[in-house]
Simulated assay, not measured.
Amino acid sequence: MKPLIGITAYNYQDNASFVTKSTYINAILLSGGTPILIPYTTDLMECRNIVEKLDGLLLPGGIDISPRLYKEEPLKEAGMSIHNIDLYEIRLILEAKKQEKPILAICRGIQILNVALGGTLYQDIDAQKAATICHNQSISIRDEMTHSVSLISDSVLYRLYQQDKIYVNSYHHQAVKDLAKTLLPTAYSLDHILEACESEDGRIIGVQWHPETLINTDKNSKKLFQYFVELCQEKC
C-alpha cells in the first residue's frame, strides 16, 4: 500500500477553489506516495481527524506568515498573510508531531513549521539586513539553481547528499530567524540565512528552497523526496 501524504491547499486567490501547485503533487507521485490535498478549514478540531488518516504531511510554499504569531508588528515590507490559514497549518503540524507522522516543509513550510514550534522569522531579509546574496530569483525558470548552501555534517541532508555544499533554487523574502528549540539547523547560505532544519530523530525536515521543481533534474531532490516517502511508508 502506498503511503497517503497530505498537502495543504488554500483558497486565498479564488474563494471558489482550493489550490496547491502540481509540482508538489508530482514529486510525491514520482517518489511512490499518494498525494491527498487538505483543504483549508477554520474548524481546527477537524485537523486531528485529518492527520489520523494520513501517513505524512507536506507543507508547501505560499504567502507570508502573520507576525502576530511571533509577537511582532508587521514591517512595511511584509507581504500578504492570512492569520486563520496560519493557525490551520500550525494545528496540522502540532497534530502530525503528536501522532509521530513525518513532515516535509518547503519554503513557507519551513517558516510556519518554525513558528508552530516556537521560533521566529525575519519578516523581510533585505529590510532587516540579514541577506547579502539574492534569495528571490526570477520565477521564470524555477529549476535554475542559483546560490550555494552548506550542509552540516551528521544531518539527514548530509547523509542523503554526501556533499558539503549544494546549489539550490530560491524564492523567498522571509526566513527563519530564531530556530525553534526542538529543531536542529542543518544548512546555511553564505550570508548565514538558515536554509534547512530537522528534528532530532530526522522525521521532520524543513528546507527553504524548492526541491519539488528540481526532482526531474537533480538527484539530490529525488533522494529527499524518496527519504520522506519511505518514512511515511513506515506509518502505513
Rank of each mutant, 00 (worst) to 15 (best):
Q233Y: 15
T182D: 08
L94V: 08
I63N: 03
A105F: 07
E46D: 07
A127G: 14
A27T: 12
D143C: 07
K21R: 14
G56Y: 01
Y122T: 08
L59K: 03
H192K: 13
I166E: 00
A78V: 09
I28G: 08
R203L: 13
G119T: 01
I139S: 12
S140I: 14
Y161W: 13
I50Q: 01
L157G: 00
L58A: 07
M1V: 07
N220D: 13
I205Y: 06
L37Y: 10
S153R: 15
I28N: 10
K98M: 08
N136Y: 11
Q128M: 01
D218V: 14
L44R: 06
A16M: 15
Q111M: 05
D143V: 03
L59M: 07
A16I: 11
K21Q: 11
Q174K: 00
I38D: 03
L4N: 12
W209V: 15
A196L: 05
V149P: 07
N216L: 13
I204C: 14
L157V: 02
L69V: 10
S148N: 06
D191V: 00
F225N: 09
C47G: 05
P39M: 11
L194G: 01
L69D: 10
I215F: 02
Y161A: 05
V115A: 01
R68W: 10
I85K: 09
V176D: 04
V176A: 04
C232E: 02
S155E: 08
V115R: 01
E212C: 00
K129S: 12
V229M: 03
P3K: 13
E73A: 15
E46G: 09
Q128Y: 01
C107V: 15
A127V: 13
S189C: 10
P3Q: 14
D154N: 15
I193K: 03
Y122Q: 05
S138N: 13
E200Q: 09
Q111A: 05
I38R: 02
I193Q: 03
E198S: 08
A9D: 06
I139N: 13
K53W: 06
K235M: 12
I63H: 03
Q128D: 02
S199Y: 08
Y167C: 14
V115T: 02
L54K: 00
K53A: 08
N26E: 06
L113D: 09
T120E: 00
G33T: 02
L224D: 07
Y12W: 13
Y10M: 11
H135R: 09
I63D: 02
L44A: 01
Q233K: 15
I125Q: 04
K76V: 14
Y161D: 03
S221M: 11
R68F: 14
A187F: 01
G62R: 04
Y188P: 00
K165Y: 09
D43F: 02
G32M: 08
Q137N: 09
S138I: 07
F225H: 07
L92K: 04
R203T: 14
P39E: 12
S150Q: 10
F18P: 07
H135D: 04
E73Y: 15
E144F: 10
G79Y: 00
Y122V: 08
D126V: 15
L4C: 12
Q123L: 04
